[in-house]
């Protein structure tokens, strides 16, 4: 289950709208991290046995195990490749961003 925190953020326009003090609400995300990525992980569901090794090691927590199949949130995946490198079944391929995926 991924947190639904991405939302339209309106920066304060006037002095009155500025927040008081340096505090802020928790869980505010206004942009995505997908632009960091040069390689994109693609899961081969034929090989995946859901051992969750990729899920536990993902630094960004973008892999979701809630559904029967693992799903990657490509908005926040930075493409570090730990999942593909650690996968014991080699079920994750790192594909160059922009190349055609079947």
């Amino acid at each position: 289950m991924k947190p639904k925190v991405v939302r339209e953020y309106k920066f304060p326009q006037t002095k009155e709208e500025m927040p008081f003090g340096p505090g802020s609400e928790a869980g505010v995300l206004i942009d995505v991290n997908s632009g960091w990525r040069t390689l994109m992980p693609i899961i081969d569901y034929g090989k995946c046995n859901k051992c969750l090794i990729c899920w536990i090691f993902c630094p960004d927590g973008v892999i979701s195990k809630e559904n029967p199949q693992l799903e990657i949130d490509y908005d926040y995946c930075k493409g570090c490749g730990i999942c593909a490198y650690e996968c014991p079944k080699k079920a994750i391929a790192m594909v160059k961003e922009g190349e055609k995926v079947e």
């Binding site: 289950m1 991924k2 960004d60 926040y76 493409g79």
Partner: peptide, 24 residues
């Protein structure tokens, strides 16, 4: 165990470098 851990992420969308150990 890894299987029993909740899927809910409480640390998400951060700007750490790719492959950050501290983020894990």
């Amino acid at each position: 165990s890894i299987k029993n851990l909740p899927d809910q992420e409480l640390f998400y969308g951060h700007k750490a470098c790719q492959g950050c150990g501290g983020a894990i």
